[in-house]
Nucleic acid binder design. Structure first.
Lengths: 152, 152
DNA sequence: TAGCTCTAGTTGTCACATCAACTATCATGC
DNA sequence: GCATGATAGTTGATGTGACAACTAGAGCTA
């Protein structure tokens, strides 16, 4: 019953390994740079970007989770840590008690405003500027295709 | 003193976001599938692949760390967890005490042998088979270039 | 109003990654 | 011998992620 597995060709295997290696190194480096320059983790950055964009810098926890594509529990833990560092705060919801708002604080705004330009510069230097427009287009196209398949 | 940051063009921003999103989803899914089908995490898998390839299934801890490109401490923690589950064991080194070997156990060999075909199939289904040979070549080329830049 | 289910959100547990601190062995030079 | 430094390896603290269990309000319906 065990079918012969369709192993990858050498070229495929090589491509996959290069790709995995690149992801690991790039993510590690981008996160480390961000952390070093702004004391924000990639997760912090992401949450702050979304909050700063929202009207009044506030979003319901579940909406926030949806928009960064995380599970609620992950968001809850993350927000708890960010509250402790004063980047955001929680606010009980309007009528009744069923909702929680997450609100960016002035410190949070300052942090993201300072971090953003350097972060963009890092992404440029370590990635974007190394690719031709054509390569970038290919990458975007492939990425969309893979994501689409994953969401099926 | 604050220079105008060179923000990304819409196309660049889009490409970067698609790419990041793809990585997250793909990694998450591949790891989850691996875990579900074989009770191995991506880290376990990686360690086992390298050990199974080594003569006698044994490597010095530091060599193992080097070959999977991890820090020693990460490897040490990982090996500790794997020892607890019986996938590998540690063996004091030959003369004197300065080294430690990590050795794959029969259970470890069984686990990796069972996991590999399904894992390859997953990688194929979710990634490799979705790309044309040309796209795959581009991806490999770009990955090598980015890694090279990171290692400078 | 009691009972049910849905959704929102929190919490605990464990796996994992990183960093700094620590121990132990080896190699060298005096 | 013994100081000194380099290398190998472990450990603990902390932040982070995934998952399951739990709490609690909202809406429905009998």
């Amino acid at each position: 019953m065990t079918e012969t597995p369709r192993w990858l060709s050498p070229a495929q295997q090589n491509a996959w390994r290069c790709f995995v290696r690149m992801q690991e190194k790039l993510n590690g480096r981008v996160s480390r740079d961000l952390q070093a320059e702004s004391c924000l983790s990639a997760a912090d950055y992401r949450v702050l970007v979304h909050l700063a964009d929202a009207p009044d810098g506030r979003m319901r926890s579940s909406d926030l989770a949806r928009s960064v594509e995380w599970e609620q529990s992950r968001m809850s833990h993350q927000v708890a840590r960010m509250v402790k560092r004063g980047l955001v705060c929680r606010e009980g919801c309007f009528k009744g008690g069923r909702g929680t708002f997450v609100v960016i604080t002035p410190d949070g705004r300052r942090a993201i405003a300072e971090a953003a330009p350097r972060h963009v510069e890092t992404v440029r230097r370590l990635f974007i500027d190394l690719l031709t427009p054509d390569e970038l287009r290919t990458l975007a196209r492939v990425s969309r295709r893979v994501v689409e398949q994953l969401e099926k």
